[in-house]
Design a binder for these strands. Structure first.
Lengths: 151, 151
DNA sequence: TCTGAATAGTGGTATATGCCACTAAATGAA
DNA sequence: TTCATTTAGTGGCATATACCACTATTCAGA
């Protein structure tokens, strides 16, 4: 119905991506709500967990996120005692990140809810289709769209 | 390469969607930068333009965006003189939105840049693949993931 | 060794987005 | 008509995310 009234919206790759991200974000956030974490936070805690005390720059690169944005996003998690940072002894420019014990407990709790959300999503959309979608999204993330420098 | 170090990231539908959205958002924003608009703003101006003086609620619904979020996003566009609002005479709860003449000029300018971004995206990714992706994203946006009420 | 360039983060500012509590307006039932 | 309910937006607050200017470190040459 809404699509009839929106001839052009569905043509923009970026707009469609953002729209789907809002939708899915609200859904995953809903399911994760009992843990007190947003889906973005659960995802970040998980990245930190599976990394080996990753440097901030490494996290930002793998998530294709601006380094300063990562810093901002980390703040509430540090404030709440879920993660802590420490300087790399071999290169003091580098700041590494790890979960605190409470952070690990919270992540465990959130992951249980994440599994619920993930499973229901794949039940509704279909496992194959979900997998193809993730592959397509990974593909996009890997491409280089930079403008060829005019020189 | 980054994927090797990230066994789990690529499994979460929501995380992958957000990651691709960050990547693509940065790209479209880059291309649109000369207009002074962000891709989100260009998309919103376009929605307003193709709507028939749409009500805020109608815009929010079609974009799957929270109504208050829409209100916030609209503010800089109103401040900069690109859009204006007015109460619906038949129902004064309803606030309708339209482009100003300057807004229309700005949208024209931004759409030219949008075409460049869109075309290059489809050159890199492939037109068919892009279309399938948009269809999949539209599909996700249309699904209902609500938890069945426990009753 | 000294110094200029490159690297890693921080802080400020601005937009993007969501939730909640609240107000105003319209509606429907008694 | 009157009042409880529903509908449409607003404003405050919090997180998400980006860019820019700036600082601290490291590194590569001269």
């Amino acid at each position: 119905m809404s699509k009839d009234a929106l001839p052009g919206l569905t043509l923009c790759n970026n707009a469609m991506l953002r729209r789907a991200a809002r939708k899915l974000g609200q859904y995953y956030d809903d399911v994760l709500a009992p843990s007190g974490l947003k889906a973005t936070q659960q995802g970040l805690l998980y990245q930190i967990h599976i990394g080996n005390e990753p440097a901030m720059g490494a996290i930002a690169a793998s998530m294709i996120m601006d380094l300063s944005a990562l810093g901002h996003t980390l703040k509430p998690l540090i404030r709440d005692g879920y993660v802590e940072t420490f300087a790399d002894p071999d290169d003091r420019r580098i700041k590494r990140v790890r979960l605190t014990p409470q952070g690990l407990v919270k992540l465990d709790e959130a992951m249980k809810l994440w599994h619920v959300a993930q499973r229901r999503f794949e039940d509704v959309v279909g496992r194959d289709k979900a997998e193809r979608l993730r592959a397509a999204l990974d593909d996009i993330a890997a491409h280089d769209f930079d403008l060829p420098p005019a020189s």
